[in-house]
Amino acid sequence: METQIGLRVDGTRHTVRIDTRETLLDVLRERLGNTSPKKGCDHGQCGACTVLLDGRRVTTCLALAVSHDGAELTTAAGLASGAQLHPVQQAFVTHDAFQCGYCTPGQVCSAVGMLDEASRGWPSACTEPGELVRLSDAEIAERMSGNLCRCGAYVNIVAAIRQAAVDADAPDTP
């Protein structure tokens, strides 16, 4: 069955006809030609398809497109504005936090979503009960463990996110 939905992707509004069986990931990649989110497993097991959906990180291979009519999506392509990378992306470049790059857009979106979750004080499995969230390496690694990287860039990913978190906290220098 086909139907029509509206999506706003990286700031651009789209009206698109879809098969009701399609995932948001497939609509982005096959219908809208936005291949920034990747398909690594199609089963919610790798995180490569992560985007920000209404500001929260979501695995789009598990999201049926038809149930997200009107959604606002930001992919890793949309996090950069022109040649200017998002600070998390820049930190990934600085720390060589990738190799093949296939997991990377998902890692970047996941990191942006995760930093927002942490700043709201949402605990993770390794936050001590009753304690404030402090983004230690263990906290970062725990919160990023839904994004697999077969190239094994994890230690650089954690270093990049740690730097982005510190930079975001630092008061603006005049």
Binding site: A138, E142, C149
Partner: peptide
């Protein structure tokens, strides 16, 4: 035969690799 059951190291599995 998938990544939920064939486990590969995740971020928290590799805290220090130098």
């Amino acid at each position: 035969h998938d990544l939920a059951q064939y486990h590969i190291a995740s971020c928290a599995d590799a805290p220090s690799v130098q």
